[in-house]
Design a protein around this nucleic acid. Structure first.
Length: 502
RNA sequence: GGUGGUGUAGCUCAGCUGGUUAGAGCACGGCACUCAUAAUGCCGGGGUCGGCGGUUCAAGUCCGCCCACCACUACCA
């Protein structure tokens, strides 16, 4: 059985879930569902990142123990997976014991191999941002220096362990060269390669300035800093270092990430893994950002999009469809209410929903609700349907979600052309046998459409396949090879998509 | 500043190694149909393919210059 391993980033619990989180996970979910339909054994991983100074401080401000605090706030992300219908197989938290052990084991292996050294880290530091800044990034007012974020900075020196990233520059470039699809889209790949060619410095991987993190083995004054802790989640969740049953899923097929954290996944992560003697992932895909009605989204502008509210207002499947249909995956896009309404009404309700409704109504009225004899596909509709699952699969293997949906809806349009041209409602009087053939062809078309759309809109497509009379065990891609038997009872047609007022 | 990329119908975009009247969806106008969620289908209007110059029998499609916009330019979970 082929295997597929897909991941989302672990989301930082110091933030509320927003559209960006939902978007990344949605893409991973659709691919995971597709692979399952295609007979793969899938491990789809998501989770939360719960360490760091910001969490420590937020817990302190809330008067809570950090663990109790993260137990509470990470719940919002587990809730999001339910609201969005995500089919993740695991949900990892970096505060789990197994993760602490994996991080420490990874550290030890890196140390044994001479990849870690103790040094000192100093620079202009903003407590609020939990970040160091270069002098050229700072602005000075009234003798105080400020970070670009507006946070005041101070000169800080602290001991720190460093990962020998600099010596991996050539190995990374060789790796990118040997694995041209490792970073996608291509434009991001170019950026990363240009960056690495510009030279790499060793990476600070520990801090002494806070305690809420994984202790460094053999030096309790330090906790691991950010990426060594965060990235390791991907192998923790697969049972490393014990390398039990789930370890067979490594290396991950796609790490889905936002473009802001591409570098860490495309540079640090393979370097860590290679340095520890482990296999790097197969691909990192960096998607773009959403704007809200043309405006950049920011907390200060107060225009953050809440996925939960969105689903309440428009319904889950229209939202899932819109997010992957509207914008080429990888590019930035705009979230406009009018565009969402237009996609929902014009494509889901009019093109697809209405097609299903008119077809099923005709079968119910004119064929006594029983499926007519199998009939070979014809004409443009036949061409649009031929190999559609394979074409969709090829697009999804390249994370071209919008092209997959475009191909599916081109077939739905072809079905509308077919029904209009063949006019089964007229054939009813002139040629009932031909009418049955046409209705069967349309039913077959709907079954294909419903099957391949399941990963995108699981709830609605389950209803559609119910109405079509497709048994639960005949909804995988492979099942499409066997026609439904003549006489199969057709369910009662009912509108699948509600229209939204503009 | 450096590197990479984009600029094609009102909007969002597709146009592989240069070659018949430059395409799609949406929007707009007309017609047809009436099975259907006032849905669907057909036809049509509309483009100096950012600008200038060049290569070629032939250029959105290659070259040069210019203009505009975008991304990346390290430790921000």
């Amino acid at each position: 059985m082929p295997r597929t391993c897909l991941t989302t980033p672990i989301y930082y619990v110091n933030d509320r879930p927003h559209i960006g989180h939902a978007y990344t996970s949605l893409a991973a979910d659709v691919l995971a569902r597709w692979k399952r339909l295609d007979g793969h054994e899938v491990f789809f991983l998501t989770g939360t990142d719960e360490h760091g100074q910001k969490v420590e401080k937020a817990a302190q401000d809330a008067g809570e123990d950090p663990q109790a605090f993260t137990d509470r706030v990470s719940q919002a992300f587990r809730d999001l997976t339910a609201v969005m219908g995500f089919s993740n197989d695991a949900f990892i938290r970096t505060t789990e014991g197994r993760h602490r052990r994996a991080c420490q084991e990874l550290w030890k292996r890196l140390a044994e191999r001479g990849e870690i050294r103790l040094g000192g880290y100093e620079g202009w530091y903003a407590v609020r941002d939990e970040a160091f800044y270069g002098l050229d990034e700072l602005t000075e007012r009234d003798g105080v220096k400020y970070a670009p974020s507006g946070a005041p900075v101070e000169w800080v020196t602290e001991p720190s362990y460093f990962f020998a990233l600099s010596k991996w520059q050539d190995r990374l470039l060789q790796f990118y060269d040997a694995n041209p699809d490792f970073i996608a889209p291509a434009t991001r790949r170019n950026e990363v390669i240009a960056f690495v060619k510009g030279g790499l410095q060793d990476l600070s991987i520990s801090r002494t300035s806070f305690r809420w993190g994984v202790p460094v083995p053999g030096d309790d004054a330090h906790v691991m800093y950010v990426w060594l802790d965060a990235l390791t989640n991907y192998i923790t969740a697969l049972g490393w270092p014990e390398e039990g049953a789930d370890w067979r899923f490594w290396p991950a097929d796609v790490h889905f990430v936002g473009k802001d954290i591409l570098r860490f996944h495309a540079i640090y992560w393979p370097a860590f893994l290679m340095a520890a003697g482990l296999e790097p992932p197969r691909r990192v895909f960096a998607h773009g950002w959403w704007t809200n009605e043309g405006q950049k989204i920011s907390k200060s502008l107060g225009n953050v999009i809440d996925p939960v509210a969105l689903v309440e207002q428009f319904g889950l499947d229209p939202v899932r469809y819109f997010l992957l249909r509207e914008v080429p995956f990888g590019q930035d896009g705009d979230f406009a209410r009018a565009a969402l309404v237009n996609r929902t009404n014009g494509e889901l309700a009019d093109v697809l929903g209405n097609l299903a409704n008119r077809t099923l109504t005709l079968i119910a009225k004119n064929c006594a609700g029983a499926l007519p004899t199998p009939a070979p596909p014809e004409g443009a509709l036949g061409e649009a349907l031929a190999g559609l699952p394979a074409r969709v699969g090829a697009h999804l293997d390249r994370q071209e979600f919008h092209l997959a949906l475009e191909a599916i809806f081109a077939a739905a349009r072809a079905a509308n052309v077919h029904i209009t041209e063949q006019a089964p409602w007229a054939l009813r009087k002139t040629d009932p046998a031909r009418m049955a053939v046409v209705l069967r062809q349309l039913h077959d078309a709907l079954r294909v459409l419903g099957t391949v759309l399941q990963p995108f809109m699981p709830g609605t497509m389950a209803l559609m396949l119910d109405q079509l009379g497709v048994p639960g065990d005949a909804r995988a891609l492979a099942a499409l090879d066997a026609p439904l038997p003549e006489g199969t009872a057709i369910g009662t047609p009912a509108p699948l998509f509600r229209k939204v007022e503009a």
